[in-house]
Design a protein around this nucleic acid. Structure first.
Lengths: 255, 255
DNA sequence: GTTGACCCTCACGCGACGTGAGCAACTATC
DNA sequence: GATAGTTGCTCACGTCGCGTGAGGGTCAAC
């Protein structure tokens, strides 16, 4: 039998949290002494673990209660539902990152965003649909058609293989940015397998092999084109030159 | 000049939110009419976008206020910082999704997760530091050192390494639990090669050999630490004492 | 002048606890 | 067995970012 503070120490929650969980009936103590002290047993520790797991997954306490108290409750289905929620959240983050990239470009004058596009990714999809419906009303169906079609193209563009490819690219870029943060030189990073991953991504985008010379040429293009610079600088300050240095060092070593 | 509902439609926030942002001084309208209506301009739309970006990162509104009102505020730099934060957030979501996948697999009986794995990436760093400090106090610096190092070792592991290790552990634990179910005594199970497998797993986690004495000491820790107890009891009722008895019997027989 | 969409200001509600306040009870030491 | 320090308890209000009415003024159109 453990007291509140003991359980708190073991599980990492606060005493108040245990009080709260008792209050709402989520985790009543095994016994309550004549002094009104709460005492918890092994059974309660296990239940607390379950609670914390589900809480960590973002489920509200009420739902956790339902899951743990109903033996017939379909945990798998609940978790899958929650997984889908998380997935859309994750995609939402990807949208946000793209919006930030475009915003940075906009602030640098490389791109012009309409008032509406400013909010892309920040706005729930249904709200955007509402807005589009409102546009149809205001400007007539022709203008709305243009807007709609451009979005359709973008939707096709980001789905499927593209998403996987973007993930691959993000892994390579983020990893190399981390290497830069850790003080590893660009020349050393040229040996990092992430460079190979990056080159493989390029080849995949081009749909043809990317030999060392072409890879070095691409580095130059990154340097001379502001869009690319904006993109790489948004990952980390100085990352443009870092990446291109590593790319060129790699190419030199190959041939 | 846009009214509240127009801004709301464009930005996706509610009218109430705009009221709220005015109330707390985060986004005052450009002008207020004689009828007390709020009117917003392009400037305010830009500021709102900044607010939404920061809010999406989980920053409290008060902090957003401070950031945006600072005249030294560099939008591009801030956005770049945010981008990186978003990326780690996105990775956190990916972690959560993986954890859920594994939990689902676990519930379906396809996989066995250790508690440590269960909470992987979900426990705040400071809590873990607290917990480790407490471990030092309770078990002495030696054991805590092992635990700490094992975490470090595990951090370097690939997903495949981890899965292999977890499988190894699961095989040993499940096998011994089955032995217990079949009525085989703990003393007899001490001769089971599964005990050797379990000890090898421990050595692998600690990244150093686990001599009989240390193995017996570990058994005592399992017994005295409720977290471990909870974990083993979740495999089978009474498995904690069964396993520790077998571990100790094995250790005695060795030396 | 009436309708209906829009605007306003209170002001309470929520979810998951944090944070005292004020008091009882246990533990350790002198 | 007195005392001090820790730990426990129960209220009960505070937090954050709004949602959700209630109750009432304003505006454009018919």
């Amino acid at each position: 039998m453990y007291t509140v503070s003991e359980v708190a120490r073991m599980s990492g929650v606060t005493v108040r949290t245990l009080h709260h969980y008792d209050e709402i009936g989520l985790l009543p103590p095994a016994h309550i002494g004549e002094n009104r002290y709460r005492y918890y047993g092994r059974e309660e520790l296990l239940r607390l673990q379950q609670i914390l797991l589900h809480r960590a997954l973002g489920l509200p306490l009420e739902e956790i209660s339902a899951i743990l108290d109903d033996p017939d409750f379909d945990r798998v289905a609940t978790l899958q539902k929650h997984r889908r929620k998380l997935q859309t959240e994750a995609e939402h983050y990807a949208d946000l990152i793209r919006t930030i990239d475009r915003t940075i470009a906009d602030l640098k004058g490389d791109d012009v965003m309409s008032d509406m596009d400013l909010y892309s990714g920040l706005v729930p999809a249904e709200k955007q649909a509402e807005y589009e419906a409102w546009l149809v009303e205001k400007y007539g169906p022709d203008m709305a058609e243009d807007i709609k079609r451009s979005k359709q193209v973008m939707a096709d563009w980001t789905k499927g293989d593209m998403e996987a490819a973007m993930k691959q690219l993000a892994i390579a870029e983020q990893g190399l940015a981390n290497a830069m943060d850790r003080g590893i030189s660009a020349e050393d990073s040229a040996n990092d397998p992430l460079i190979e991953i990056h080159r493989a991504w390029v080849a995949r985008m081009w749909d043809k092999p990317c030999p060392p010379q072409a890879y070095a040429g691409l580095a130059d293009m990154y340097l001379s084109h502001p869009d690319f610079e904006a993109r790489y600088e948004s990952i980390a300050k100085g990352f443009t030159t870092y990446l291109t240095d590593a790319m060129k060092a790699w190419a030199e070593r190959q041939g």
